[in-house]
Structures are given as C-alpha cells and as structure tokens.
Amino acid sequence: MSNVPPDLQYTKTHEWVRTLPDGTVEIGITDHAQHALGDLVFVEVPEAGRAVALGEPCAVVESVKAASDVYSPVAGEITLGNPLLAGEPEAVNNDPYGKGWLMRLHPTKGAASADLMPADKYQTLLQTEGG
C-alpha cells in the first residue's frame, strides 16, 4: 500500500504539494510514483529564479527503466531546487515526502493551479488505477 500523508495535496500525475508557512509551496512525487519508477538513479531539479507555467515540465526523475517529467502544479518562480538530490537521488525513494522533495516555488499571485486533490481523493484515484 502506498503511503499518502493526510496533510498534503495531490495531482492526477502523482505530484504532491505542501504549502509552507512563508507562502511558498514545496513539490515532490508521491510514494506511489517513486515505487512505480523503481530505484532512482538521477534527478534533475530546476534552477532558482526560473519562472514556470502551470503544467510545465520542470524536473525529471529517472530510474534505470523509466524516466518521467514532473509537472508544476502551479505557476510561479522557483525559489530552490533540492540540492541533496544531485548526489543522493535515492532520497526520493526513501523519503518521498521529506528529504526527497524536488523543488520549492513562489506561486504567482492569482494564477490558476491544477486541480489539487486531498489525500482521501488521491487514495481513491490510486485504487481505481489498480495501484
């Protein structure tokens, strides 16, 4: 069974979103997604200062058998890509909701965001996908 923490929001494409106290958001991929990809061997995160649009691919997670783009669930400006992952991509496998976060961004005011789901709805989605 996948771990789906109740305090986060989720996208259909298996990203999670956490709103931090300063209003920026932290983005990562879910436990389900990391499991489906297998052992990650490389993670590419965006550089700080890059403007990203809603739904724009802005990070890449790569295992030996698959590679997947990570789409930004909200428009904004990247404030930080997780520097840990260059040397330790397995952090995404081991701690997808903690040390394995991918990027933080400052959302553009009033910009639309993707349809974010609460944990229970994401859990249901995983069940219907046969996860």
């Binding site: 490389f42 790569e62 295992s63 030996v64 058998k65 590679a67 783009d69």
Partner: peptide, 14 residues
C-alpha cells in the same frame, strides 16, 4: 548498457 533513460525505447518522444 547504461543511462538508457536517454534513449528512444524508454524516453520515446523526449
């Protein structure tokens, strides 16, 4: 063979 995620059989259109 390594770094195969660059290649067409995995990355397809990208």
């Amino acid at each position: 063979l390594t770094l195969q995620a660059r290649e067409q059989h995995i990355r397809r259109a990208k």
